[in-house]
Design a protein around this nucleic acid. Structure first.
Lengths: 183, 183
DNA sequence: ACCTGAACACCGTTCAAGT
DNA sequence: ACCTGAACACCGTTCAAGT
């Protein structure tokens, strides 16, 4: 990549990170280009779709979450590993306004730039889920997709109103309780 | 209301019902006006905000759901009444694409045209909830707002992908299970 | 190879002018 | 009283013209 192109790409990412943090996944791409002091066409050249931009913003975070799943699997007991990881995931999915919907949609759309990351999260969560189910701690009829959907739904709730965000940990406990196997 | 105004209002509602059913709560208001063969200003005169239009579209449904709560309370055992009603509510909240977010936001925004209806649903659900909690069937730390949020979240999940819609009854069972009191 | 911004086809919302 | 549509300030996306 030419150095001026690299520089533009970086400027776009910095501007997008700020604007998306402020206004959510639906932030105006024109605003992003303006803030980056870059032509609108330049933004589209580097990131043909909004998802491409989001994927670039979230790449690191998803990497870390995947590694975190492995670390928890190795150190914590199965149920603890699952609930801790899910909790961290819900925090990550709530990073941007509108992100939970984008993630849940991307999981079911192989063409989305976010698909690979979502698939990775589903797999990482699925491994922790299987281990907990093996130990008879979690209902056997819960699938990795169920887990991904519920976790995003919890992030979505917290995203709808500040009052609900305060209630978020409690709702997390309620939902997780529903996944537990009954003695 | 002048007869021509009444006629315009009705035309707008018919057009909006069709378009919102097709494209969701974010359907273009311009399209609604065009389909109703009405000037754009006429639409805004009858429905100053998008929520006003949605409220008019949903009024009947909410009335029925409120009555339904009373009927179930009188005829079914507490837990059955609660789960049946919640199930019907989730179906109603999934009537339009984007509706769950609008409802959850409106519950926390007294100025929204949808607020009264949401408040009514929260109260209706809250009564069924209290009865089930009285019987020791549901965890005492579940609030009516928790219930409203979770029900809308379930509708939201079903709204994100057809695959998830198929999984909707199962997810409903999982979440409801989390609300049950443990022996 | 890469950048730019005008051009196009859309929005939501308001409001002067009409009947 | 009520209706209309032009006007305004925005979008997302594409693409010819430039370096």
């Amino acid at each position: 990549m030419r150095p001026d192109a690299r520089r533009n790409r970086d400027r776009i990412l910095v501007a997008a990170a700020a604007l998306v943090a402020e206004q959510g996944t639906q932030a105006s791409l024109r605003d992003v280009a303006r803030r980056a002091e870059v032509g609108l066409g330049t933004l589209y050249r580097h990131f043909p779709t909004r998802e491409d931009l989001l994927a670039a913003l979230l790449g690191r975070r998803f990497e870390e979450l995947a590694e975190r799943a492995d670390a928890l699997a190795a150190t914590a007991p199965p149920e603890r590993a699952l609930t801790d990881w899910l909790h961290e995931f819900t925090l990550g999915a709530a990073a941007f306004h509108g992100l939970p919907a984008a993630l849940l949609a991307a999981l079911h759309d192989p063409d989305s730039a976010l698909h690979a990351s979502c698939d990775r999260m589903r797999t990482a969560g699925g491994r922790l889920l299987a281990a907990a189910q093996q130990g008879g701690l979690i209902r056997p009829d819960v699938t990795p997709v169920d887990l991904f959907a519920l976790a995003n739904a919890l992030s979505w709730i917290a995203d709808q109103a500040p009052t609900l965000a305060e209630r978020s940990d409690h709702l997390f406990d309620l939902v997780l309780d529903g996944l537990r196997a009954r003695g």
